[in-house]
Simulated assay, not measured.
Amino acid sequence: MLGVRGSVAGFLTLATVLPAVAQDFDPAALDLPALVECRADVPTYNGFAFWLAGEPDAADRLGWRKVDSDNPFLSQYELEKSLAAFGSETRTLVFTSSGPMAVLDGMTAPDLARKLDIEPMISTPQKFLGEKVVSEKTETSEGVKFTTRISLNVSTVETHPGKVLAGCSYKIEVE
């Protein structure tokens, strides 16, 4: 979700802004397909992510059930209603440290990556990892440099055999 590097001032700036971002999130306004398919911006994703992590009953309010994942780097949820993303539907969603990914059946990672114009960084029978940068910009405010980066990702992981993970990564780096 956030990558913070360097400056204490940058961290303090974020520390004062982020609680307000989480409080401003309206779950009725959630556009989950937009978050998964990289059609949202970083503040929109961060507002949702901080709300989901900070509200004790957030998943229940969305009709989601947290599921134990064999992968310590993924938080997994079963959705009450199907999520339509990338021309497919799923009821399983995982979150990485930087964004949501749909867990998809019935396709291969290389095929989906080609469809989404994503170049593979790793493409073997055991592992696929591809990324396409959707947006990247740098701004400076009061001497603090903020870099936002949104990337579309397709991958496979050992803990989800036969599945393709596809979704978005939203990052802010502060210097």
Rank of each mutant, 00 (worst) to 15 (best):
G106A: 06
T124W: 00
E131F: 02
Y77A: 06
L18G: 11
L74S: 00
F25S: 05
K66F: 02
L14M: 13
A49L: 05
D111L: 10
E136C: 01
A85S: 06
C38R: 10
A85P: 01
M121C: 00
D117C: 00
P120D: 03
A15D: 12
S98N: 09
A84T: 15
P161C: 11
F86V: 08
L152C: 06
P33I: 01
G3T: 14
D57F: 09
F48H: 01
V8F: 07
L32N: 05
A34G: 03
A29Q: 14
F73V: 09
L129G: 00
I122G: 00
D111N: 05
T147I: 07
V154N: 05
F48R: 01
D24L: 14
G63I: 04
D117S: 10
L152Q: 14
M1S: 14
L129Q: 08
T108Q: 07
G130R: 01
A59C: 10
V133N: 03
R5L: 11
V174L: 10
N153Y: 02
E37F: 06
C168A: 12
I172H: 02
R91T: 14
R61I: 02
S75Y: 00
V144R: 07
T90H: 02
V164P: 10
T16D: 12
Y77Q: 06
E37N: 10
Y170N: 13
G162F: 09
I150C: 04
G63D: 11
S123K: 03
T124E: 05
K137F: 05
A29F: 01
A29S: 15
K81G: 07
I118F: 04
V154Q: 03
G10I: 09
L152G: 01
F95R: 00
T16N: 13
L18V: 15
T148A: 10
L30F: 03
L62Q: 12
S123Q: 12
L32M: 04
K66T: 10
T148H: 08
T44N: 11
D41I: 07
N46D: 14
G167N: 08
S135R: 13
A28E: 15
K81Y: 11
P43Q: 11
T44R: 15
L79D: 15
V164K: 07
G143L: 01
C38S: 12
V157P: 03
Q76M: 10
D105H: 04
D26K: 08
K127I: 07
E55Y: 01
I118G: 05
E119T: 12
E173F: 06
T16E: 11
T156S: 10
M101N: 03
T159V: 03
S98L: 06
V4H: 11
V174Y: 03
A113I: 04
K171G: 09
A85M: 03
